[in-house]
Design a protein around this nucleic acid. Structure first.
Lengths: 191, 191
DNA sequence: GTAATTATTTATCTTATGATAAAAGAATAG
DNA sequence: CTATTCTTTTATCATAAGATAAATAATTAC
C-alpha cells in the first residue's frame, strides 16, 4: 500500500508537486487493489466516479458498437485511467475499464477529489495538468487515425509501444487501430 | 469592445461564474479584433500563446501533411479556439488558425492568463472546465472518425452543423472528415 | 464584364479494407 | 493430458475510397 501510493506521488511530481497535507488528503480518499486478468474494473452504463492509477499491469477502455467490442485505448504502468467523457459531464459512461494483465491499482474517489479542489488549489492544478496532457494525447491521436493507412498506424504503434502488442490480444489492437482483426492479420503477414 | 467582452463573460458563466475582479483581470489581458476572411490569425510554426474567443464569424485550425492542407476543426460563434497541443506543452504548433468568415475575436494572452491562475483560483477553475469540455469533444470525435463510414460522418456533420456546410469551402470539410474532396463530392451526389 | 483563378463535380481505374467462412494455432478447464 | 474454447491466420469475394484527369461551376481581380 505505502509503496504503491509513493509511486503515485512520484507520478504526480511530473505535473505538480504537492505539499505533505495535500498528499495525505489524496491518500485519505484512495484505495489500492489488485485485480485479476480479464476483470472489469468499471462496467458499462455507470457514471465514472473513480480515477485510477495503474501501478503494475495493463488495462484498456472499451465499449460496444453494434454489439462489436471496440478498444478505445490501452493503459500501462504508471498511468492514470479515467473515462473523461463521463467524469467531466456526470453522464453515464458507455465505456468500461478492463484489466488485461493482473494489475496493481490505486482508485481515487473522484467526487471526494473534486471537493478537495476547494481546499487545495494545488490538487486542482495537479489534475488540471494531468488531464491537459491526456487532452493533448487525444488531439494527437486524431491526426494518426485520420490521415494514416491502417498499415502506417500499426507500424507507428509497434514503434511507440512494442510491448502492447506482446501483452495484449490482437483483436483488441485491431479495434484500437480502427480496423477488423482480419485486416490486422493481413497487415502483419506483410511484414 | 464592451459588448464583445460581455458576450465572453456570458460564455464563461456556462462553466464557472467569476467575481467582478476576476472579470476585470481577464479584460486587462484581452484584446478585441476584427479579422478579414482568409486571414491567418496564427501562423504555423509558432508556440500558441493566445486563447481566442470567436464572437462572430467562422474559423478553422489547419495544418499540412505532405503538403496537403488538412482541417483539424471548425469553430463558430460563441466558442473558444486554441491549439492545445502547443498551449499545454509549450512546443511550437504545426497548426494554424485561419478566419473563414469575417470575424469578431477576443484574444486572451495565455501567458498572462496562466499567471492569473495563482491569484484567482476561480479563473484556473473556469479554464479547467472549458478545456475539459474540449477534451470530451475530442474523445467523442475519435469514436466518430474511427467507426463510421465517410458517408455516415458527412451525414452526422450535416445534422449537427448544417451551417458549417453552407459557410465553409467543401475542400476544408473533406479533410475534416478525413477523406478527399473527390470522395466528398461523390458522397454528396448520392443524397 | 471579361479573364483568370479557384472550387466542385464527374469519370475511370486501382487498391485497401470489409464481410464471411474456414483452417490452424494457442490457451484454459477439468 | 485431452477436450473445449478462444484467438489468429488464410482465402475469396465485394465495396468504399484513393489517384488522376478533365469538365463544369463559382469567385475574384482587373
Amino acid at each position: 500500500m505505502i509503496q504503491i501510493m509513493s509511486s503515485l506521488f512520484q507520478y504526480f511530481k511530473n505535473f505538480n508537486s504537492l505539499s505533505k497535507e495535500a498528499e495525505e488528503a489524496i491518500a485519505g480518499i484512495s484505495n489500492t487493489m489488485c485485480i485479476k486478468k480479464n476483470k472489469d474494473l468499471q462496467p458499462i452504463g455507470y457514471t465514472c466516479k473513480t480515477i485510477y492509477f495503474v501501478n503494475k499491469g495493463v488495462a484498456r477502455i472499451y465499449y460496444h458498437k453494434d454489439a462489436i467490442d471496440i478498444t478505445e485505448g490501452f493503459y500501462f504502468e504508471n498511468n492514470i485511467i479515467a473515462r473523461v467523457e463521463s467524469l467531466f459531464t456526470g453522464k453515464p459512461s458507455r465505456k468500461a475499464i478492463q484489466i488485461l494483465e493482473e494489475a496493481e491499482i490505486v482508485a481515487i474517489d473522484a467526487i471526494a477529489l473534486f471537493k478537495l479542489y476547494d481546499k487545495f488549489p494545488e490538487i486542482e492544478r495537479l489534475f488540471r495538468k494531468i488531464f491537459e496532457a491526456g487532452h493533448v494525447d487525444t488531439v494527437n491521436r486524431i491526426e494518426g487515425i485520420q490521415f494514416h493507412s491502417a498499415e502506417e498506424r500499426y507500424k507507428a504503434l509497434l514503434n511507440e509501444a512494442n510491448d502492447v502488442l506482446k501483452k495484449v490480444p490482437l483483436k483488441y489492437v485491431a479495434s484500437y487501430l480502427g480496423i477488423t482483426q482480419v485486416s490486422l492479420s493481413r497487415i502483419r503477414a506483410l511484414q
